[in-house]
Computed example of a mutant assay.
Amino acid sequence: MIRTALVAAGLVLGLSAVLAQSDPIAERRNTMKGVGAATRDGAAMAKGEVAFDAAKAQTIFKVYADAAKKMPGLFPDNARTGGESTAAPKIWEDQVGFKAAFAKFETESAAAGSAAKDLDGFRSAFGAATKNCGGCHEAYRIKK
């Protein structure tokens, strides 16, 4: 009985992973929601609306770096449209530039984590990181 339950649980987890991989539009939307939440937290900290927290700053930049590493793989040819996607055709027309933008974002986000030891360092690093977001959205996202 326990063995059957463990096998069933394993199958459910495996199926969930396959379904997540089979819907890259949903996966990239969820990843960007995480980036958006981190950005809201970072903006509040940068504006002084909440106290500077070095651990939280590290988490924000880790979310950015992890998303930057993951996102380029979530744009296969079969996920150009559908699922309320705002991905611009330029992503597939300029794969080199698109991947380079995420590589830059990943590198700068990783470096920003070490620069964010105090509020001034955080503000500077956060501003640079979010410029990457804006640049990519300008070039590779359809405005709705």
Results as ranks from 00 to 15, higher is better:
Ala87Thr: 08
Val35Asp: 04
Ala55Val: 13
Phe126Cys: 04
Ala88Ile: 03
Gln58Asp: 15
Ala5Leu: 10
Gly42Asp: 06
Phe105Leu: 15
Gly36Pro: 02
Arg3Lys: 11
Arg141Ala: 03
Lys56Ser: 14
Gly42Trp: 02
Ala115Val: 00
Gly42Thr: 08
Ala9Glu: 06
Glu106Pro: 07
Ala139Asn: 10
Phe126Tyr: 12
Arg80Ala: 13
Trp92Pro: 05
Thr86Cys: 03
Asn78Met: 02
Lys117Pro: 08
Lys69Ser: 14
Phe61Arg: 10
Leu15Ser: 09
Gly97Leu: 10
Leu15Tyr: 08
Leu119Ser: 13
Glu93Asn: 09
Ala26Trp: 01
Ala67Glu: 07
Thr31Asp: 05
Ser124Arg: 10
Ser16Tyr: 03
Lys117Asp: 10
Val63Ala: 13
Pro24Ile: 02
Arg123Trp: 11
Ala46Tyr: 03
Ala110Val: 14
Phe102Arg: 09
Gly34Asp: 08
Met1His: 12
Gly134Asp: 05
Ala54Met: 09
Gly48Lys: 04
Val7Tyr: 00
Ile25Asn: 03
Thr86Ile: 06
Ala87Asn: 04
Thr130Met: 12
Gly113Glu: 03
Lys69Val: 01
Ser16Met: 06
Ala125Cys: 11
Gly83Ser: 08
Arg141Asp: 06
Ala5Asp: 00
Gln58Phe: 07
Ser109Pro: 08
Glu84Cys: 00
His137Pro: 10
Ala128Glu: 13
Asp53Gln: 03
Ala111Thr: 01
Asn78Glu: 14
Ala79Glu: 03
Pro89Cys: 01
Ser109Ala: 15
Pro24Arg: 00
Trp92Asp: 05
Lys70Arg: 15
Ala68Ser: 14
Ala57Ile: 10
Lys90Ala: 14
Lys47Pro: 07
Lys104Arg: 15
Ser16His: 01
Ala65Gly: 08
Gly127Phe: 14
Ala125Pro: 12
Ala8Ile: 11
Ala57Val: 12
His137Lys: 06
Pro76Trp: 01
Thr107His: 08
Lys33Glu: 14
Gly36Lys: 01
Val63Thr: 15
Pro76Tyr: 04
Met32Asp: 09
Asp41Leu: 15
Ala68Gln: 02
Ser22Val: 06
Tyr64Met: 13
Ala57Tyr: 09
Leu19Thr: 15
Asn30Ala: 13
Arg28Ala: 02
Phe52Val: 05
Phe105Glu: 04
Gly34Tyr: 10
Cys133Arg: 07
Leu19Glu: 12
Ala51Gly: 11
Gly14His: 07
Asp53Phe: 06
Ala67Val: 02
Phe75Tyr: 13
Ala112Tyr: 05
Glu27Pro: 00
Phe102Val: 07
Ala101Leu: 07
Phe126Ala: 01
Ala110Asp: 10
Ala67His: 04
Ser114Thr: 11
Lys47Cys: 02
Ile142Thr: 02
Gln21Ser: 14
Met45Val: 09
Glu93Gly: 05
Lys47Ser: 14
Glu108Val: 08
Gly48Met: 06
Phe52Pro: 07
Lys99Gly: 11
Phe122Asn: 00
Asn78Cys: 01
Phe126Gly: 01
Pro76Asn: 05
Ala9Lys: 01
Lys131Tyr: 12
